[in-house]
Write a protein that binds this DNA or RNA. Structure first.
Length: 930
DNA sequence: GACAAGAGATACGTC
DNA sequence: GACGTATCTCTTGTCA
């Protein structure tokens, strides 16, 4: 009995594939016709016939009109680009060729080729066939069975046969039908099946492995966590619908006619002229032998050239409706006068106008984002709302400086208010062009930060909220983010000037709104006397920068890199395999699956094994590999975050590192530092703190460092008025030991180091607002013990407990809490019904005034110190702030004076019920100064 | 299908 | 509790 092997080809999928395969190097015949698609398809067909010699065969085509999927889903395949011209005219030819091969073409209205093929495959299975579905399309995996296979062409003429085992292995699933669920989740961009946004193949496969199918998944979303849970839950319907779209139908109304599918010999007489017209010479020879065409060979029945019958494109569906009209106004709807100031004469006129103005807004356009390395492209100014000026700055830097100089006296006028959005940036840029911006500052970004610390502060957002206005998007000028994004310099002036002038105009408008808000919120003092003077101090610190000893870093780098290599090898040895030690996931798999060092390993919210330092530390004794992994991680962190990264950030012009101190980032009022973050240079571990050795003063200078002792606890003592704690500070005792003595009810000289350690953690726990649970975690003690500790703490400091309750009460009443200087932190979640969310807000109610007040105090100290250094004509410079610590570059002969100024200003920055104490140190580098 | 960019998660440095 | 950065992993868009 003859073997029954049916091959079903998905024509369009194969044609598209051939077309793209040749796209770089298309086949063009002498008539200029692109024959890539036809040739590719025929080649694939020939390979198949030769290799498999099928007993039965058919080709499925998608029908012309809409299918049931389009009827259910308007957008189905809607995003697909119009069929390429080449494919459109190739299809009829291919059909003709298939006809000449005597292979049946199957096309059913309203059903796609995959439904037709799926149905035929199932019918054939009942008739005892082995069916091979020839397609590159992965969707067919769902149809695979012991007698139905996917037959995927590979480039180079080979094929890959996928049966149930291969499909199951490929996705790690239990049955091929689960392919539908996977597709339903991940979607299919080529068919415009949406799936669940943010879920791709990996996540889809994992979910289906865990839940078995979409139905079960959607019924148990409570088992999910984090972003994934939200994504799945908010896309329920779309997921179910995607599953429907991805399901290949196997009930297309068809009859299975075994005889019609039986393979017939090629009709050479029909095929030859087609190949000849296409100029497929080698194919003609291979398929038909080298018999010359007879002169009388009839043309195809239609008597038309093969290429005349390109089909008309389908009328495209109407575009999806535009998103709802936004109610914002923009540059087109608001009357304005923006001037291009492009002659020297006009510039001088403008400069004169600015020089006698009491206030003006300005903004700079530059070539990048790092103010210490950019070049100016233009300056814009605004004196009154809806009118602004743009001054282009020449590329030539000599001429650029001359142009900027025209505006020097206006910008340096100490009597006028300078308004800007993120004005520190412009201040630094202008400094590098020889202009020191003087006079009071008004930064709209900082103003808004005080009003709404946890919101965004960028100009677009502010314009939107306060002005109902949508500024010209920068992307409209320089293109979308990415490699091809232009620099401002590459944008024609005619385009820049509207955008740039608008920036200055909008900034001025915002200032007019925000200053009223500041008054209403009684934050003027905080803004004008603290934040704005601080902006200038920070700008000067950034400009000064800090020296780094690259040789020192290089030798550390070499040493640690070598050590890291050794550790890596030892780890591979112990694991018995190589893996990526930087990958938490792989580490988890090695430790918990391969080495099985812990039976009940903790998982993260995404279901991976957690391998945090805390967890590994506890497992250290289980296996020697654990300690080595921890060591390696530590070293790698030092190398990648600090040692190897710092030299890259040295400014080639100044030879120093210029970090950015961000004034509008934290919720509490602290500063943050970035590029690089110099506020998290290691200090706790001996190995890590060595990095500080690389931070050095200028030649002939010393590194001077001063830090507040226990500032947060002192503030807590002050705010709470707790008599015991105030007393302890007034007496100058070791506060952690004093706390331990109180909690454990022992004399202070009987406090053990363990007691002190626990008391210290409790002190910090209170400041950081951690819970009983958090404290237990931190101290690695049972929760019950942590509870006892905290109870003992409040017994010792009863007024602290009172203060904490009062803070929460205040937050509930007013919706916010305040620092000693009136900095607010909004806490809308204080009324939340979710106890986790509410607990978080409550801890913030306690923590924010403490941390924020500490920030206030050091900011005051910074402003006063900077002022004194300037007034006294000292060359010493403040270079870093690390929350409660200030660092200075000090010429040796100024050391005593600076010490005095710094300590005095720090300790007297703000009078509290307890003394403020600053400790200090000096050295040849940051490490020594501590 | 390959590649790059972007986003999220994890881990870890500081105060 | 507050941050910023590095790395890995996965998704998504782009370009053929």
């Amino acid at each position: 009995m003859q073997e029954k092997r049916l091959f079903l080809l998905d024509a369009y999928a194969l044609i598209y594939r051939s077309y793209y395969a040749f796209i770089k190097n298309p086949r063009i015949n002498s008539k200029g016709i692109n024959t890539s698609a036809v040739l590719g398809f025929v080649n694939t067909l020939e390979e198949l016939l030769k290799k498999e010699n099928p007993s039965h065969i058919a080709v499925g085509f998608d029908p012309q009109g809409p299918t049931f999927r389009h009827e259910a889903y308007e957008q189905y395949k809607a995003q697909r680009e119009e069929t390429p011209e080449v494919i459109r005219y190739s299809v009829p030819i291919i059909k003709e060729i298939i006809g000449a091969y005597n292979i049946p073409i199957i096309e059913v209205p309203r059903f796609e080729a995959d439904d037709v093929i799926g149905t035929l495959a199932k019918l054939a299975e009942k008739e005892g066939f082995d069916t091979y579905m020839m397609t590159p399309d992965k969707d067919y995996g769902q149809l695979v069975s012991p007698h139905i296979f996917m037959y995927r062409p590979k480039f180079g003429g080979d094929f890959e046969i996928l049966g149930p085992e291969e499909i199951k292995a490929k996705y790690g699933i239990e049955s091929p039908e689960q392919v539908i669920d996977i597709l339903g989740l991940m979607g299919d961009s080529s068919d415009n099946i949406p799936g669940c946004p943010g879920v791709g193949e990996k996540t889809a496969v994992k979910l289906i492995a865990d839940f078995g199918g979409i139905e079960n998944l959607l019924a148990h979303t409570d088992r999910l966590k984090g972003a994934l849970k939200t994504k799945i839950e908010s896309n329920r319907e779309q997921i179910e619908f995607s599953r429907f779209l991805a399901t290949i139908r196997t009930d297309v109304p068809l009859t299975f006619d075994e005889e019609a599918l039986r393979r017939e010999p090629v009709n050479a007489e029909k095929l030859r002229p087609i190949f000849e017209e296409l100029e497929f010479r080698s194919l003609t020879e291979r398929v038909l032998g080298n018999k010359p065409a007879t002169a009388t060979m009839p043309k195809p029945a239609t008597q038309r050239s093969l290429f005349d019958q390109a089909e008309q494109p389908e009328t495209s569906e109407t575009q999806a409706a535009q998103p709802a009209e936004s109610k914002l106004t923009d540059i087109h709807s608001v009357p304005h006068t923006y001037h291009l100031v492009d002659t020297t004469e006009k510039m001088w006129d403008l400069a004169a106008l600015l020089a006698c103005a009491p206030a003006f807004a300005f903004d700079s356009e530059t070539t990048g984002i790092d103010p210490m390395s950019v070049e100016l492209v233009g300056l814009s100014f605004a004196l009154k709302e809806h009118e602004a000026y743009y001054v282009p700055i020449p590329d030539d830097q000599q001429k650029a400086r001359e142009t900027v100089r025209i505006f020097k006296s206006a910008l340096e006028n100490p009597a006028s208010l300078k308004i800007g959005q993120n004005i520190k940036y412009d201040y630094i840029v202008l400094h590098n062009y020889g202009v020191e911006v003087k006079g009071n500052l008004f930064d709209t970004m900082v103003a808004h930060y005080l009003l709404q610390p946890e919101q965004y502060h960028n100009m677009d957002y502010l314009a939107n909220v306060y002005l109902g206005y949508k500024p010209v998007a920068i992307e409209e000028l320089i293109g979308p983010k990415g490699k091809k994004q232009l620099s401002m310099r590459q944008v024609p002036i005619e385009q820049i000037y509207q955008y740039a002038a608008e920036d200055a105009d909008v900034t001025l408008q915002l200032k007019n709104r925000l200053e009223k808000e500041l008054t209403r919120e009684k934050m003027e003092k905080l803004f004008y006397e603290m934040e704005m003077p601080l902006t200038r101090v920070l700008a000067d610190m950034e400009i000064t920068g800090v020296n780094v000893d690259t040789a020192e870093l290089k030798s550390s780098s070499d040493l640690l890199t070598r050590r890291m290599g050794e550790l890596e090898q030892e780890i591979y040895q112990l694991a018995g395999t190589t893996f990526n030690v930087s990958s938490a996931r792989q580490v988890g798999e090695i430790l918990f699956e391969r080495l099985k060092i812990d039976e009940k390993a903790k998982k993260t919210k995404t279901g991976q094994y957690s391998t945090t330092e805390e967890i590994l530390e506890k497992l250290r004794s289980r296996h020697p590999i654990v300690g080595k992994i921890l060591d390696l991680r530590g070293i790698r962190k030092l190398l990648s975050t600090y040692i190897n990264a710092l030299p890259e950030l040295i400014n080639p012009r100044t030879g120093k590192i210029h970090t950015s101190f961000n004034q509008t980032v934290t919720a509490t009022g602290r500063l943050s530092s970035s590029n690089p973050n110099l506020q998290n240079i290691p200090i706790r571990d001996n190995e890590g703190r060595e990095i500080r050795r690389a931070f050095v003063p200028d030649p002939g200078c010393l590194f001077f460092s001063a830090d507040y002792s226990q500032i947060e606890l002192r503030i807590m003592a002050h705010l709470s008025g707790d008599r015991h704690m105030i007393e302890a500070f007034r007496e100058g005792s070791d506060i952690h030991a004093a706390t331990a003595a109180k909690i454990y009810k022992v004399p202070i000289d009987e406090v053990t180091s363990d007691m002190r350690r626990k008391a210290k953690t409790a002190n910090f726990g209170i400041i950081y607002g951690i819970s009983v649970f958090g404290l237990a975690e931190r101290l690695n003690i049972p929760r019950s013990e942590a509870k006892v500790l905290i109870d003992g703490y409040f017994e010792s400091y009863p007024q602290i407990k009172e203060y904490m309750n009062k803070s929460i009460e205040v937050a509930r009443e007013k919706g916010y809490v305040e620092t000693i200087c009136g900095r607010k932190r909004m806490l809308p979640d204080i009324h939340s019904h979710n106890s986790v969310v509410r607990g978080y807000a409550e801890r913030n109610a306690i923590n924010a005034p403490i941390q924020g007040s500490a920030a206030d105090i050091i900011k005051i100290a910074m402003i006063r110190i900077a002022r004194r250094l300037e007034e006294e004509g000292l060359k010493s410079r403040m270079i870093l702030q690390v929350h409660d610590e200030l660092n200075f570059n000090v010429p040796a002969d100024e050391l005593d004076r600076v010490k005095e100024i710094v300590c005095q200003e720090m300790e007297n920055a703000y009078p509290l019920q307890v003394p403020l104490v600053a400790d200090y140190g000096t050295g040849h580098n940051w490490l020594e100064a501590h």
